[in-house]
Amino acid sequence: APRKVEMRRDPVLGFGFVAGSEKPVVVRSVTPGGPSEGKLIPGDQIVMINDEPVSAAPRERVIDLVRSCKESILLTVIQP
């Protein structure tokens, strides 16, 4: 079942996760003590960023979407 995860941007750590460059977009790592800790799990597949589906989106679009979130971000993720 999809999970909705909302995180506030940390001034130092950002959102505190690293996503892979393949499709679908998969969470590779979560920064300890960062905003994503306890919310995202490595292996989570990101299916939506805010209200935009990203399963088939180019990597550049995913990066732009994350960067455009100055304060908070809403991710919809699934464990494949």
Score class of each variant (00 low, 15 high):
Leu13Trp: 11
Arg8Cys: 07
Asp44Glu: 06
Asn50Thr: 02
Gln45Val: 07
Ile49Val: 14
Ala57Asn: 07
Gly16Lys: 01
Pro2Gly: 14
Thr76Asn: 14
Ala1Ser: 05
Val27Thr: 02
Gln79Thr: 15
Gly20His: 12
Ile63Thr: 10
Glu60Gln: 14
Val5Tyr: 08
Glu71Pro: 05
Ile49Met: 03
Ala57Met: 15
Asp64Tyr: 05
Pro80Ser: 10
Leu65Lys: 13
Val27Tyr: 00
Ser55Ala: 12
Val47Phe: 08
Val25Leu: 14
Arg8Phe: 15
Ile49Ser: 00
Val5Trp: 04
Pro24Gly: 04
Ile41Cys: 13
Leu74Gly: 15
Arg67Lys: 14
Gly43Ala: 04
Val5Glu: 06
Gly43Ser: 05
Leu75His: 03
Val5Phe: 09
Ile63Asn: 15
Glu52Ile: 11
Glu52Ser: 08
Lys70Met: 06
Ile78Trp: 10
Pro2Asn: 14
Val26Gly: 03
Glu52Val: 14
Leu40Tyr: 00
Glu37Ile: 07
Ala19Trp: 11
Leu65Ser: 06
Ala57Asp: 11
Gly38Asp: 10
Glu52Phe: 09
Arg28Glu: 15
Ile78Tyr: 11
Thr76Arg: 10
Ala19Met: 14
Asn50Val: 02
Arg28Asp: 12
Gln79Ser: 15
Arg67His: 12
Asp51Ala: 09
Val5Leu: 07
Ile46Phe: 05
Gln79Cys: 15
Leu65Ile: 11
Gly43Lys: 05
Glu22Trp: 04
Met7Pro: 02
Glu71Asn: 08
Asp51Cys: 07
Lys39Tyr: 10
Val25Thr: 14
Pro35Met: 04
Ile73Pro: 03
Thr76Gly: 13
Val77Leu: 08
Gly34Val: 00
Gly38His: 11
Val30Pro: 01
Val27Asp: 01
Glu60Val: 07
Val5Pro: 01
Gln79Phe: 05
Ser36Asp: 01
Gly33Tyr: 07
Thr76Lys: 12
Val25Cys: 14
Gln45Ala: 09
Val62Ile: 13
Ala1Met: 05
Arg9Met: 07
Leu74His: 14
Arg61Ala: 13
Gly14Arg: 03
Cys69Pro: 04
Gly20Cys: 08
Arg59Met: 11
Ile41Met: 15
Ile46Pro: 02
Arg9Glu: 04
Leu40Ile: 07
Glu52Gln: 13
Phe15Met: 04
Arg9Cys: 06
Arg59Phe: 14
Thr31Pro: 03
Val77Phe: 02
Asp51Gly: 14
Lys23Thr: 12
Val26Cys: 10
Arg3Val: 06
Glu6Val: 09
Ile49His: 02
Asp44Pro: 00
Gly43Ile: 00
Pro32Gly: 08
Pro11Gln: 07
Val5Ala: 05
Pro53Ile: 15
Gly16Glu: 01
Val47Cys: 12
Gly33Pro: 01
Val47Asn: 06
Leu40Gly: 00
Ser29Asp: 12
Lys70Leu: 04
Arg8Thr: 13
Gly43Met: 06
Ile73Cys: 11
Arg59Asn: 13
Arg59Ile: 11
Val54Ile: 08
Leu65Gly: 04
Glu52Arg: 11
Ser29Met: 09
Gly14Asn: 07
Ala1Tyr: 07
Gly38Ala: 08
Val54Ser: 02
Pro32Ala: 12
Thr31Lys: 13
Val27Asn: 01
Ile49Tyr: 01
Lys4Ala: 01
Met7Gly: 01
Ile63Cys: 08
Pro32Thr: 12
Pro58Ile: 04
Lys23Pro: 04
Gly34Gln: 01
Pro80Phe: 04
Pro35Tyr: 02
Gly16Gln: 01
Ser72Val: 08
Leu75Arg: 02
Ser29Pro: 01
Leu65Pro: 01
Arg61Phe: 11
Val30Gly: 00
